[in-house]
């Protein structure tokens, strides 16, 4: 049993089973429906965060286009299912391929420019995408936004909100396992070497172009998946939602949770998207202040980078070892 708990795969599975219990708990009356929606939100932002972490944590490249790619995925999926009448999986494939291709193009550009230019270049791309969302009305519905329904699998099975929630949980599990394997493989080690020193990586025979492209592809692919899940769970997408602030919040998930960990972004998504909605807004007096969530996230980013650069995911471990040290001292 103890060994089973130490195995990362069973940890992921256990976590997902716990998350998937939420709709049942809601039916039993233990959770209210807004909490379930927030947990669903946390899960699809976790997926996006895990993707961005491959780029930021493992390869040390900053992208500010995340929200744009998420938006692109969401609009395309809404268009494919509502206007073209496709079912969920074909529309998913189309909606993640387009961001993926754009991600690859940026990967090619990124090879030419230095690290700190990249955030600026991706910022430009997200501005272009936002303009596209607002203006290409026949696909995106313009400023008034675009509606979508709950996913329809294989053209016959129509899911309700609870089942969509379970679907998101299943996606998160698949992504957690896939990314874990991917990071522990040759590719993951190559990315880590590249982050340490590009010159050293190149000297060791690591093809920079290939691995930078892989990192970008993963980040945009996951952002696309996150966007698709978003639009079929929230059932609405509008252009001003896909702004820089959202990209920064997803970045915050990684920084706060812990770079270069698989579970860090998931933990961070709970802190950034869950805590303000579930806890801060319910506090007396200060809960009603506008912008409290932003201040909370902003302060956490700065504090974590300055004083706890590995991320809050290690908080448990560190407290444990601190406690142990104290006990040893007391015994001695």
């Amino acid at each position: 049993m103890k060994q089973l708990l130490k195995n990362p795969y069973s940890q992921f599975a256990l976590f997902i089973i716990l998350m998937a219990l939420a709709p049942t708990l809601k039916q039993l009356g233990l959770l209210n429906s807004s909490t379930v929606i927030i947990l669903g939100t946390v899960m699809f932002y976790s997926i996006v965060g895990i993707g961005l972490n491959v780029l930021l944590g493992y390869s040390g490249l900053i992208s500010l286009g995340t929200a744009g790619f998420m938006g692109l995925g969401s609009y395309l999926s809404a268009y494919c299912t509502q206007d073209l009448g496709l079912s969920f999986f074909p529309s998913l494939i189309i909606s993640v391929t387009v961001p993926l291709v754009i991600g690859l193009i940026i990967g090619l550009i990124s090879l030419r420019i230095e690290g700190y230019y990249l955030a600026i270049a991706t910022l430009g791309i997200s501005e272009i995408l936002r303009q596209v969302f607002a203006e290409m009305e026949f696909v995106t519905g313009g400023f008034s936004g675009k509606n979508a329904g709950y996913p329809q699998l294989f053209g016959i099975i129509k899911l309700n909100r609870q089942m969509t929630y379970i679907l998101i949980a299943a996606f998160l599990l698949a992504i957690l396992i896939f990314t874990y394997n991917f990071i522990k493989s040759r590719t993951g080690r190559a990315l880590l070497t590249m982050r340490g020193s590009e010159a050293a990586a190149q000297a060791m025979g690591i093809n920079l172009l290939k691995y930078k492209l892989i990192a970008f592809a993963t980040a945009t692919l996951y952002a696309g998946i996150g966007g698709v899940l978003y639009v079929h769970f929230i059932r609405f997408s509008y252009p001003s939602g896909w702004n820089l602030t959202l990209s920064l919040q997803i970045l915050a998930c990684i920084v706060i949770g812990g770079m270069r960990t698989i579970s860090g972004p998931v933990f961070g998504a709970f802190v950034v998207f869950g805590v303000p909605e579930l806890i801060l807004k319910r506090l007396p007096v200060i809960g009603s202040i506008d912008g409290l969530a932003y201040i909370f996230t902003g302060v956490l980013i700065i504090v974590v980078i300055l004083f706890y650069p590995n991320g809050l995911i290690y908080l448990g471990n560190d407290l444990q070892s601190l406690f142990r040290k104290k006990r040893v001292k007391n015994n001695g």
Binding site: I62, D290, G291, Y294, I295, G298, V299, I305, L306
Partner: peptide, 27 residues
Amino acid sequence: RAKKVSPVSKQIITFGLIMLLLGLAPM
């Protein structure tokens, strides 16, 4: 305090500053 922080993390600190100011201004 951020003298020893890597350049990428320095950029991220300014992102944190954006969020902080974005929250403080309407408050």
